[in-house]
Simulated scan of single mutants.
Amino acid sequence: MTSQTPGPARGPFPGLLIAFEGGDGAGKSTQTAALAAALESRGLTVLRTREPGGTPIGEKLRSLVLEHGHGEIDGRTEALIFAASRAAHAEQVLRPALERGDVVLTDRYIDSSVAYQGAGRHLGTDRVRGINEWATAGLWPDLTVLLDVDPADGRRRRTAGDAAEDRLESEADDFHARIRGAFLELAAARPGQYLVLDAHLPVDDLAAQILDRVDALLSLRQGSSA
Score class of each variant (00 low, 15 high):
H70P: 03
H70A: 12
G71H: 08
G71C: 05
G71T: 06
E72L: 06
I73T: 07
I73N: 06
D74F: 11
D74Q: 07
G75T: 03
T77Y: 06
T77C: 07
E78C: 08
A79W: 00
A79G: 10
A79V: 05
A79Y: 01
L80H: 12
L80Y: 13
I81C: 15
I81T: 02
I81M: 15
I81R: 02
F82Y: 15
F82S: 02
A84P: 06
S85Y: 05
S85G: 10
R86Y: 07
A87V: 10
A87H: 11
A88E: 15
A88L: 08
A88V: 04
H89W: 05
H89S: 06
A90R: 00
E91D: 15
E91H: 13
E91W: 10
E91K: 11
Q92C: 06
Q92A: 13
Q92M: 08
Q92H: 13
Q92W: 08
Q92L: 15
V93N: 04
V93I: 15
L94P: 00
L94M: 07
R95T: 00
P96W: 05
P96G: 07
A97G: 04
E99D: 14
R100Y: 00
R100H: 04
G101N: 02
G101Q: 01
G101A: 00
G101T: 00
D102A: 11
D102G: 08
D102P: 01
D102M: 08
D102S: 06
V104R: 02
L105C: 09
L105H: 10
T106Q: 04
T106P: 09
D107C: 06
D107G: 05
R108K: 01
R108V: 04
R108P: 09
Y109F: 15
Y109E: 04
I110H: 00
D111Y: 13
D111Q: 10
D111S: 07
D111L: 02
S112T: 11
S113R: 02
S113P: 09
Y116C: 13
Y116H: 12
Y116A: 14
Q117S: 13
G118K: 03
G118H: 11
G118F: 10
A119T: 10
G120D: 02
G120C: 12
R121E: 15
R121C: 10
R121V: 12
R121K: 12
H122K: 11
H122I: 07
H122R: 14
H122P: 01
L123Q: 11
G124R: 13
T125N: 09
D126M: 12
D126R: 05
R127F: 11
V128M: 04
V128Y: 02
R129G: 02
G130Q: 10
G130Y: 11
G130V: 09
G130L: 10
I131C: 12
I131V: 15
I131G: 04
I131N: 05
N132G: 06
N132H: 07
N132K: 05
N132R: 11
